[in-house]
Design a binder for these strands. Structure first.
Lengths: 355, 355
DNA sequence: CTGTTAGCGCGTTCAA
DNA sequence: TTGAACGCGCTAACAG
């Protein structure tokens, strides 16, 4: 059967404890002994028994990364970056960075958190916007609290800070979350709309993301704030999911609600692509008839025709930083929270309104 | 601290063994007892200790899904589909389906396999093409053999069948791989090139994927086979990675090598987008001056302008099937291998050559 | 620097 | 249907 630590010890003529020490590299071991042990490990094709090790040490080397949609590069880029900072750090004991796909489902989010708690995960990174349902938010907060209690380091990436129930000044509530990297969706969205306003647009449609999501709300709020500041009345707004199809359908609906639209702002780049397709199918040219803008600046956005005006979020950098924070390789930002800003990328899909 | 099985047992006034039986549902337990146990579990916020459980049971509920690039929807779609078939099957004990991103690195692939072996993973799914280096292939085969020996079910998805060293007829070598779903890259590529030939193209450039990868080779082979059958000489070929930038650069190189090209075939859709950008920047129109074709039919391909002619691979279906196979929820195909075919999607990016 | 000794928390016999 | 007892393979004190 599979070789155990004891087998290795016997073969190397040392005690099991010594083998353990060699493998974990935590205690000094004579070079000659270590050599013998490593050879025995090799000869026996020995692989440490993770569960046994985790049980004895009361901690595992598993790090969970939760994403809302693994097929969406928005999450893939962040998750990949985080994973690259976690797996195989030189010298450090190998961590197993794993990505868990919730599919945006609240139940699955909680299920995965429980599963990670069960595995005694060393750290958990939650990416992307949160659901606004208070019940679910409380459930997540509670779960995170228990995970943190059990020693897991919690990091939020691209997610608003956790609102701690009953965490007032001096209540002594230790925050469950070690660090939060939050995206400035509101500010980015605001600058994007200001750009449109500067180009002369006054009738702007909005294809929003799924309802009850923080990302959706913040982006809408930034948009509305820019309009309010300029004294421009909001145009029609339609909610949909974060996919291309939704952008297509919602844009047709927008056009129906207000045929005089001169610009469409989309929840993200993927949705914007769908919006572009709908406009083209209606015989409208971009940006001559209607300008279109996205959000996130995913890799394909620059290849759209015309190239998409959007707000660039440093997804890779944020994910990598979250990974380092989860590993304790980077100091926690002051207050535990850092805001990540987006950068307006003006490209061909937006232009001046016709004279 | 964290509650244990014994705590639950004490609170429910039963033995630890009974609690275990209730939790695992493997043995009959009186309804009243079960009720009491479940209440105690709830009151104590008890969460099973995974490592301890795995150690005792000599198996874990972890299922690993290896991908080459998590930021690429090609893998994200497969992984998400597989995960949806694995996580939270009703009744079944919750499995933890986790995605591991190798980044295309052979070392990380082996590292992840070792880590999964260490965790005594219940199953492992490897997605996407493999590296052709014989040394690495042998190392992977050996690792998979050991994983399988330890009870893990191995499934390949979108990957060529594992060549078993020394597995001849009657050698009694039990294949380590439970099931293989392989993509017909060769056939799909061949049909794509035939389509181009039918449109009159005779000077076709090829932007290939990374060298030493099975996917790259098979797609190139299909392309060359179609040309050979038609008696057409192969055009220039340039290798690159699977990203947009690579497609852009390679296409400029192709144009330099043969300015009279009338078509460009790309390794995949992402690369094709880069190719389109390069052609446009050179002032060439698609498909009037040059036709472009991709592979995979990722969601954004239909939104390219013009929409991309490509070969659709049923990524979601294949991933889901791999997930079911990993869970033993679906019968293994005859011979352990099933070929998944692609479908030619003719769209606007390819057209007849000019008269 | 190395060996000895106890558990870590749970599943699974075996009896009852 | 339930309980008692043992051991899974490893780490972490404590000696030496």
């Amino acid at each position: 059967m599979t070789a155990t630590l004891a087998d290795v010890a016997a073969r190397a003529r040392v005690s099991p404890a010594t083998v353990s020490r060699v493998l974990n590299g935590n205690y000094p071991v004579a070079a000659a002994t270590r050599e013998r042990v490593l050879r025995a490990v090799d000869e026996l094709d020995y692989v440490l028994n993770g569960p046994a090790s985790s049980l004895a040490a009361a901690t595992s080397d598993l790090v969970g990364i939760l994403v809302n949609d693994i097929a969406d590069p928005f999450f893939g880029i962040m998750a990949g970056a985080a994973q690259s900072e976690i797996g195989g750090g030189p010298g450090a004991r190998e961590k197993l960075a794993v990505v868990c796909n919730t599919g945006g489902s609240p139940e699955r989010e909680l299920t995965y958190l429980t599963l990670l708690q069960r595995q005694r995960a060393a750290a958990v990174i939650l990416t992307g916007g949160a659901l606004e349902d208070p019940g679910h938010a409380a459930a997540v907060a509670a779960k995170l609290g228990r995970l943190a209690e059990a020693g897991a380091r919690i990091v939020l990436c691209g997610r608003p800070p956790l609102v701690l129930p009953g965490a007032g000044a001096g209540t002594g509530v230790r925050p469950a979350v070690a660090a939060t990297l939050t995206f400035d969706n509101r500010g980015g969205s605001r600058r994007l709309t200001e750009h449109l306003l500067a180009l002369g647009h006054r009738r702007i449609g909005y294809v929003a993301g799924p309802e009850e999501r923080t990302t959706t709300r913040h982006r809408v709020e930034g948009h509305l704030a820019a309009l309010a500041d300029a004294g421009v009345a909001p145009g029609p707004l339609v909610h949909g999911s974060y996919d291309r199809r939704s952008g297509y359908d919602a844009t047709l609906e927008l056009l129906r609600l207000d045929p005089s639209l001169t610009a469409v702002v989309a929840a993200n780049d993927t949705v914007a692509l769908g919006a572009c397709a709908a406009l083209r199918d209606r015989g409208l040219s971009i940006p001559d008839d209607v300008s279109v803008a996205g959000f996130d600046d995913l890799p394909f956005s620059t290849d759209a025709v015309p190239a998409l005006t959007t707000v660039r979020l440093p997804l890779y950098e944020a994910g990598a930083r979250a990974g380092r924070l989860a590993m304790g390789k980077e100091p926690v930002p002051p207050g535990g929270i850092a805001t990540v800003h987006g950068e307006l990328m003006v490209r061909g899909s937006t232009g001046r309104t016709r004279a």
